[in-house]
């Protein structure tokens, strides 16, 4: 038994090392020497359900970016989208798929890899803050649900209630159609996102416009699909800020021409 534990532990260690290696290796290839900064487009969240199976994560990404910008009330125009940060965030959601999103200690341990990767690029800011969390994509209203791939009523195969078991064929036919779980609306997702930002204690700095750049990546976690699990998306946000904000060097005085 002890041996088994040891083997599994070493496997885990190796696995986490492998993830770091993947991250570092791809960072070398992806990140360009000079950072590109772009304006963030406005994408307001609607009250319609967000079908992530159809829409993927791109729209959600754009919405969250836009919402982040709208938070920055003091200097709304200052927050921009950084190509380096976007690449890094995207790389993070692809490379790390485990418990790093829930475990703050584990996440902090990864910050140096972000810093090293960030050093590959020359950008206008030099402070970065990385945040990660998961957001639920399907609403079960806090109730019991089950997964049944044979029913075929919903693409998600998730239904509310208790899964009927031990029924005969005729009983099965008499059963009413199961109620599939609802998707969260876009606004709900944004609310979840904002709640997470609040939890990370960066809203104050974001509101006062201290951050200059942002990069967001939303990746739907495929491991939560078609299982008796609520489908989630991994979210990594990287904020970049200028350390030397508002500082000006004096221009060398030039003598007036006679």
């Amino acid at each position: 038994m002890k041996k088994m534990i040891l083997i599994s532990l070493s496997f885990l260690c190796h696995f986490s090392d492998a993830q770091v290696r993947v991250f570092n290796q791809h960072a070398k290839e992806l990140i360009e020497a000079k950072d590109t900064v772009m304006e963030i487009e406005e994408n307001s969240a609607s009250n319609e359900e967000y079908d992530f199976l159809v829409n993927g994560s791109d729209r959600l990404n754009a919405i969250l970016l836009s919402e982040t910008k709208s938070v920055s009330r003091a200097r709304p125009d200052e927050l921009k989208k950084s190509q380096t940060l976007m690449s890094l965030a995207s790389l993070a959601t692809t490379a790390w798929k485990g418990t790093q999103y829930a475990d703050a200690k584990k996440w902090r341990a990864l910050s140096k890899h972000f810093q090293r990767a960030f050093n590959r690029s020359t950008s206008k800011f030099n402070y970065t803050k990385e945040i990660s969390f998961r957001i639920k994509l399907v609403n079960n209203h806090g109730k019991r649900f089950y997964c049944d791939k044979k029913v075929g009523v919903s693409d998600l195969n998730l239904y509310s209630g208790k899964k009927p078991t031990g029924l005969t064929k005729s009983e099965k036919e008499e059963q009413p159609d199961p109620v599939p779980l609802d998707y969260f609306t876009e606004q709900d997702l944004v609310n979840q996102f904002m709640r997470q930002l609040n939890r990370q204690k960066i809203m104050r700095d974001l509101k006062s416009g201290r951050y200059a750049c942002v990069g967001i990546s939303v990746e739907i976690d495929e491991r939560t699909l078609n299982k008796k699990r609520i489908p989630t998306a991994r979210v990594v946000i990287i904020f970049g800020a200028r350390r030397l904000r508002d500082l000006r060097l004096k221009e060398p005085s030039t003598e007036d021409a006679p």
């Binding site: 402070y127 200028r242 904000r245 500082l247």
Partner: peptide, 24 residues
């Protein structure tokens, strides 16, 4: 290089400001 400060961006920016003053 950058000074090896820790903390939130608010704290870092304030420190950098003071740092810059002493540099000047």
């Amino acid at each position: 290089v950058v000074p090896n400060f820790g903390g939130s961006i608010r704290r870092i920016q304030a420190k950098e400001k003071a740092n810059f003053k002493s540099f000047l």
